[in-house]
Design a protein around this nucleic acid. Structure first.
Length: 567
RNA sequence: GCAGGUGUAAUCUAGUUGGUUAGGAUUUUAGCCUUCCAAGCUAAACGCCCGGGUUCGAAUCCCGGCACCUGCACCA
C-alpha cells in the first residue's frame, strides 16, 4: 500500500479532490468531497465535544485576516521570513543566516543589507559549488493582503488560529468570570505559503486546524483529572535520545514531561486519536529538539502517526509559556494579566515616591503630570546620587530629590497579577483526517476497503433490498427513511448484485449494512452485516431504532438477534 | 525555488523510427438475468495535462506552462 492507492480511492469515491482541477490544479490545495467533508465533520464534532463537554473548554470563531501588528506581536512576520540567497552558477538556494553562522554571533538578527554586506566583504560563496551568491531575498511564508481599498492597511492571513484566541484573552477571561484555568478552542483554517507542498494533504497552503489554548496559572500546572489517568501509558521519544513507554505519572515524576497539564493533554490527545480510528501501534510522541522548537515554545511534544510518508506530525502539544500574552501586552499596551487572589490579603509596607507636583508643574509645564506619574511608579531604591531617572514619551529625565518625598506606605495586597501560561494542543485536521483514511485502508485481494471507525464513517448503514422487486424495495426504502429520520446517515442502494453493493459500502468505510430479503416479508426480520467480520445476523425490523444506535456505540448485538435466524 | 523522472476516461493501464476510427480492464448509467458478498449478457457515457512550434499529418518530436513523484532546501 502506498499513498497513491489511498489518494486514488479518495478521489474515486468522493473524499478528496485536487482543487481547481479543471484549470490544471494548484499545488498544495485540495477540496473535500461529500464523503471527506462528512467524515471530517464527524472528527471535528468528536473533538469539540471532548474539549467542551469533557473538559469545560469554550469555543470561539475569530477572523482569518488580521492586521500586521497582530502578527508582528506574535512574531510570525519576522520569524516566518526566511532570508534566502541563491547561487548564481548552480542555482542552489541557501538560507543566508545559516551561511554566515561562523562570522556573526547571532546572524538571525541581521537585516538584509547587513547580511549582504557580510557575505560580500567576507567572500562567502556557495557551499555546494563555490559559486557567487545572489543578493538576499526575503521569503515570507505568510500570505499578505490589504485590508480596505487603495493602499489600505497591510494584513495577513492567519498562519494559526491561536492568535485569534490570544487577542481575545481579556474578553474571554472576563467571560470565564476572571478565573483560571481557562480553556478555549477554535476550529478553522490557517494559511502558509509553503515553498514546496508535497504529500497530498500533509502539507497544504490552506489547511484546517483544531486548536486548544489552555490558560493556566504559571505556578500551578497541575490538572484536576491528572490522577485519573496517571497509570495510562504513553510511547515517548525524548529529545535526549531516549525512547520509552512510560505511564503518564512516571513521565512527570521523572521530568520527561515537564508538567502535569502537558502530560494530561498528551494522554487526552492519544485517546482522542484512538477514538477516531488512529492505530495506537502507529502512534507516538516525539519531543522537539531544542533548536526545532518554535519561537514561542518552552517545551513541545508532537503526536506522530506512522504513514506511508514516514512518521508524520499530526498534533503538536506545546507549552507556550507566557510568550504570546506578553507580546500582545507589549504591542497593544493592554493589561492581559490574570489576577491571582491570595487566600488572605497581605498587608505590606513599602517605601514609595511622592512627587511634589507643586514644583514639577512650574518646571516641566505640560510634562509635569506625566513625570509625576512615572515617579510614583518608580522604586525609591533605584535612587542614585539623590536623583532618579524616569522615562516619559521616550525621553529620559533625571529628577532630583528636591522634587519628591519618600514616604512609607501601607498597602493591602489581595493578590498578584500574573501573565497566564498557555498549554496548546494544536491539531492538523487534514493530517488527522488523512491518517484515519490511511490507517483504515486495507486490501483484500483486488478489493480495497476502509475499516473506518463507526464514529467517523460518513455513512453508517447501507440499506438494500435483496431484489428490487416483490415489494422488497418498498420495505427497504421505508427502513432507510426511518433510520435517516432518526438522525443516522444511511445509503440506499438497489443496483447490482448484493455482493457488489456490500463491496461499494466497504470501500467507503460504511460499518454496517441492512438487507431486506424474502424472509423479511414473512417474519419481519432483516440481516445486519458487519463490515470487518462480514458476519451477518438477523434482527427484527421493529428493533432497528435500538439496534442501529447500539451497534454504533459498539454494543454487543447478541441481545437483539432473532433466535434461529442467524447463520 | 533548483535537479531528475512522470503526465492516455472517474480509476488502473496498452499504444511513438510521427500515419486510418487510441485498445483493454475496473467504475458509472439503462435494460435483461439474479433469493446474501465485486457473477453473467446487451447497450451507452467518458480520455491523449494546457498552450505554442515543426510537419501534408503530432498522444508520439521541440519549446513554454501546470500538476504529480523523488532528491536538495524548507517545514512555527
Amino acid at each position: 500500500m502506498d499513498a497513491s492507492d489511498v489518494l486514488s480511492l479518495c478521489k474515486r469515491r468522493g473524499f478528496l479532490y485536487p482543487s481547481y482541477e479543471i484549470y490544471g490544479g494548484v499545488a498544495g490545495m485540495y477540496d473535500y468531497g461529500p464523503l471527506g467533508t462528512a467524515m471530517r465533520n464527524n472528527i471535528v464534532e468528536i473533538w469539540r465535544r471532548l474539549y467542551t463537554l469533557g473538559e469545560g473548554f469554550v469555543e470561539i470563531d475569530s477572523e482569518t485576516v488580521g492586521p500586521e501588528i497582530v502578527f508582528k506581536a506574535s512574531g510570525h512576520v519576522d520569524e516566518f521570513a526566511d532570508k534566502m540567497v541563491k547561487c548564481r552558477s548552480c542555482e542552489e538556494a541557501h538560507r543566508a543566516d545559516h551561511l554566515v553562522k561562523e562570522l556573526h554571533p547571532n546572524p538571525s538578527i541581521l537585516k538584509d543589507k547587513e547580511l549582504d554586506d557580510l557575505i560580500r566583504t567576507r567572500g562567502v560563496t556557495c557551499p555546494a559549488c563555490g559559486g557567487e551568491l545572489s543578493t538576499v531575498e526575503e521569503f515570507n511564508l505568510m500570505f499578505k493582503t490589504v485590508i480596505g481599498p487603495g493602499s489600505g492597511r497591510v494584513g495577513y492571513l492567519r498562519p494559526e488560529t491561536a492568535q485569534g484566541i490570544f487577542v481575545n484573552f481579556p474578553n474571554l477571561y472576563r467571560f470565564n468570570r476572571e478565573k483560571l484555568p481557562l480553556g478555549v478552542i477554535q476550529v478553522g483554517r490557517g494559511y502558509r505559503n509553503e515553498i514546496s507542498p508535497r504529500q497530498g494533504v500533509i502539507r497544504m497552503r490552506e489547511f484546517n486546524m483544531m486548536e486548544a489554548e489552555l490558560f493556566v496559572d504559571p505556578e500551578d500546572k497541575g490538572w484536576p483529572r491528572f490522577n485519573d489517568v496517571k497509570d495510562e501509558k504513553l510511547k515517548l521519544f525524548a529529545n535526549d535520545g531516549r525512547e520509552m513507554e512510560l505511564t503518564v505519572g512516571e513521565a512527570v515524576e521523572q521530568g520527561v514531561i515537564c508538567n502535569q497539564v502537558l502530560a494530561y493533554f498528551m494522554w487526552f490527545t492519544q485517546e482522542f486519536l484512538k477514538s477516531i480510528g488512529v492505530d495506537g501501534e502507529r502512534l507516538r510522541f516525539r519531543q522537539h529538539e531544542r533548536d526545532e522548537m518554535a519561537h514561542y515554545a518552552a517545551d513541545c511534544w508532537d503526536a506522530e502517526a506512522l504513514l506511508s510518508f514516514g512518521w508524520t506530525e499530526i498534533v503538536g502539544i506545546a507549552d507556550r509559556g507566557c510568550w504570546d500574552l506578553s507580546r500582545h501586552i507589549k504591542f497593544s499596551g493592554v493589561d492581559m494579566t490574570a489576577f491571582k487572589r491570595f487566600d488572605t490579603p497581605h498587608e505590606v509596607e513599602r517605601d514609595a515616591i511622592k512627587p511634589k507636583y507643586g514644583l514639577l508643574g512650574p518646571k516641566y509645564k505640560a510634562l509635569g503630570a506625566k513625570i509625576g506619574k512615572a515617579l510614583e511608579a518608580t522604586d525609591p531604591a533605584l535612587m542614585e546620587n539623590n536623583a532618579v531617572t524616569v522615562e516619559v514619551d521616550g525621553e529620559k529625565h533625571v529628577i532630583g530629590k528636591e522634587m519628591f518625598d519618600i514616604v512609607r506606605v501601607k498597602e493591602k495586597v489581595s493578590g498578584v497579577k500574573v501573565i497566564p501560561h498557555v498549554i496548546e494542543p494544536s491539531h492538523g485536521l487534514d493530517r488527522i483526517t488523512y491518517t484515519c483514511l490511511e490507517h483504515a485502508y486495507a486490501q483484500k485481494g483486488d478489493m480495497e476497503m476502509l475499516r473506518l471507525s463507526a464514529a467517523i464513517a460518513p455513512i453508517k448503514f447501507g440499506v438494500f433490498p435483496l431484489m428490487a422487486r416483490d415489494d422488497l424495495d418498498k420495505v427497504a426504502m421505508q427502513i432507510d427513511e426511518d433510520i435517516r429520520y432518526s438522525g443516522i446517515e444511511t445509503f440506499y442502494d438497489d443496483s447490482g448484485s448484493i455482493g457488489r453493493r456490500y463491496a461499494r459500502m466497504d470501500e467507503i468505510g460504511t460499518p454496517y449494512c441492512i438487507t431486506v430479503d424474502y424472509q423479511t416479508i414473512e417474519d419481519g426480520t432483516v440481516t445486519l452485516r458487519e463490515r470487518d467480520s462480514q458476519s451477518q445476523v438477523r434482527v427484527n425490523v421493529k428493533d432497528l431504532p435500538l439496534v442501529t444506535r447500539a451497534v454504533l456505540c459498539g454494543a454487543n448485538i447478541d441481545q437483539f438477534v432473532v433466535a434461529d435466524g442467524s447463520e
